[in-house]
Every structure is written in C-alpha cells, then in structure tokens.
C-alpha cells in the first residue's frame, strides 16, 4: 500500500538502524566478524532496507490497519475485531471467494493442459522454435489494461466471440451478461495470458529429461502412451507442481481483468451483472480505494492471506509426499540403466 510506505518510511528506518547500531556496539570489538565484514553487510543492505520499507512495513501496517476504522485522511479509530466480524457476515465477500475459485478452476485446468501440449510440440524438432517460444511468451508481458479493452471487443454482444460462434452455426452467447459467460470470459483471458508462460516452464522440464529414458522405454517395448504416462509425466511432476502452485497464487489474485471489463455506470467496478466477476482482490480494491474503507480493505487482505496460507499448506503436503517417493523413482531409473 503506497500510503503506508510513504508515511512509515521516515519513522521506522532510524529505529531499525539504531537497533543495528546497538547490536554492533555489544558484539563489535575491533576485528570481530561483524566489524570485519561490515562492507559486505553494507553491500547487501539495500535489498533489506528497501524490503523493510516497501515490503515488511506495509504488511505489518495492514495488519494494524485491519483493526482500525480509517478513511485515508482523518484519524484512525480502533475498532477491535469489528472489520473481521463484518467480513464474516458479508455475503458479497463470500460470493467473491466462490467466484475466485470458480474462475481459478475454469482457467487453471485447461491452461495447464494446453501448456503441456504446446510444450510437447515445442520440444519436438521444429523450425523457428525460438520464434514460437517468444510468441507464446508475449501475452504474459503485454499491458493487461490494453488487452482487457481488446477482449472487451471480443466478448461484446456483436463481437468476435459471437461472430465465431455464429460461423460454426451456434447462437449468441452472453459472454458478459450471463453468470457463466462472465466466468468463462475471465478464464479465457487468464488462459490467454498464462499458457505461454507455463508452456515454457514445461518445456524446460521436458528438456531436462535425459534421452536415455526414452530410449530405455523404447527398448523395453513401451508404447508412446506408456512413455507419456510412465516416463514423461512422472519426471515432470516437480515442474507440474511448480506450475500448479504459481497458478494458484496468481489465480487467487485475479483483479485487473474484471476491474476493466466490468466498470459500472457510476465508475465503480462491481464485477458485472450479478457480481459474477467480483473477485476477492477486486472487492478489496473497491472497499479500500472506492469506498475509502481502508480498515475493511486491510481485513479482506488478511482474509485472502489465510486462504492463500491454507492453499500453501495443501501444496506443501503434496510436495512433501512427492519428496518421499522421488528417491524411489530415481533408484528404479538407476537399476534400469545398470541393466
């Protein structure tokens, strides 16, 4: 939060420094490791200083803020757990969580599948493969707002999407006017943006698989399906896990797409008809920067943190289980090679 960073900067930094100084004073007789390595500490300090000011402080401040009532300019008022109490009884908030997960699921599953297919294609020997790789990555670095405006034309009632549907003999679809249309539209934009990125990661994973494995499988008489499911996918598991984790993190923070796509008549963005495109972060933004309820916004932020933490725990369990059977596969592989 920019507000937090700007106000807090001058007051926190000196105190951090003072504490460092005190620590040095007790441990710092001439020639002690700290003293001797001072230039090194100084050399790495810019990151820590910047992180403390622009990373750590806003996090701590937003926790403090979530227990206050604050409109951005006036005085803060301590309200205890009231913001969280409101949040638990806020139907829009619960809806935004449901929406976020629906959009996340609708986008992540097809996206990872598509990315895997593209990675396989890129991994085979084709001409201009570098050009393809760049082309697939470009959506990821294109301005979101500009792309959302383009997609606005695609999903318009008389837009490209419906023209295509008509061309194949299907009727109009309410891309931006029906509950599922809205979610599909948002999912399509996310897929468009992240497929290339994930494909490149899969590609790196594919290229790391030793070719001996394919050869051994072929010698053992495995079909291509067996090679895919028994050799390639197990080898790709850590990469798949990585992409699942990153897309969960990104998926829970969907914001720009619905904000730009569904601006309400009075300039606020409430996520379109039926608030079907209202995501957690969009709600946070609307409350904090639209209604100037910064305390409530901070509380939503921390609720999002809890959800992400639960997700991370599930991911961690998956990774841990994976860590257990990894030696087994590699041992098997070594036995195969020995044979």
């Amino acid at each position: 939060m920019a507000v937090a960073g700007a106000t807090g900067a001058p007051s926190t930094k000196p105190s951090v420094r003072a504490r460092k100084e005190r620590g040095r004073a007790t441990a710092g007789r001439p020639g002690s490791p700290v003293r001797r390595n001072l230039p090194v500490y100084l050399a790495i300090s810019p990151f820590y200083v910047l992180f403390a000011v622009f990373g750590m402080f806003p996090v701590v401040f937003s926790l403090y803020l979530s227990f206050q009532d604050w409109d951005g300019i006036g005085d803060m008022r301590f309200v205890g757990w009231q913001q969280y109490d409101w949040l638990l009884h806020d139907s829009v908030f619960w809806k935004s969580i449901l929406n976020t997960f629906e959009i996340w699921f609708l986008s992540t599953v097809p996206m990872l599948f598509l990315a895997l297919v593209i990675a396989f294609l890129l991994n085979s020997q084709i001409r201009y493969s570098m050009a393809y790789r760049v082309a697939y990555f470009i959506p990821n670095v294109t301005s979101m707002v500009a792309m959302t405006i383009v997609f606005g034309s695609v999903f318009a009632q008389a837009g490209l999407g419906n023209s295509l549907l008509k061309a194949v003999g299907l009727g109009d679809f309410g891309w931006m006017t029906s509950a599922w249309g809205i979610k599909v539209s948002l999912a399509v934009m996310i897929i468009w943006r992240w497929t290339g990125y994930n494909a490149l990661i899969f590609l790196a994973g594919l290229q790391a698989i030793p070719s001996e494995l394919y050869e051994a499988a072929r010698v053992d008489g495995a079909s291509s399906w067996q090679t895919l499911f028994r050799v390639i996918l197990p080898q790709l598991r850590p990469v798949v896990l990585f992409t699942v984790i990153t897309s969960s993190i990104n998926g829970l923070q969907i914001f720009t797409e619905s904000q730009v796509l569904f601006q309400a008549s009075n300039g606020y963005s409430t996520g379109g008809p039926g608030q079907e495109g209202m995501t957690i972060v969009l709600y946070l933004w609307q409350k904090a920067f639209g209604d100037h309820q910064f305390g409530y916004g901070a509380a939503i932020g921390w609720a999002l943190f809890v959800i992400v933490a639960i997700f991370a725990a599930i991911n961690w369990r998956l990774v841990a289980r994976f860590g257990e059977d990894r030696p087994v596969t590699s041992r098997r592989w070594r036995i195969n090679r020995a044979r």
Binding site: A264, S265, N266, G267, Y268, T270, G272, P273, G274, Q275, G290, D291
Partner: peptide
C-alpha cells in the same frame, strides 16, 4: 458513490 453502487448493480441485475 458508496450508496449508489448497489443500486446501479441491482439495476444491471
């Protein structure tokens, strides 16, 4: 702005 947002939302609905 705060008060009218739900009204515009419901009109859209």
């Amino acid at each position: 702005g705060t008060a009218s947002t739900p009204v515009y939302q419901e009109l859209t609905n």
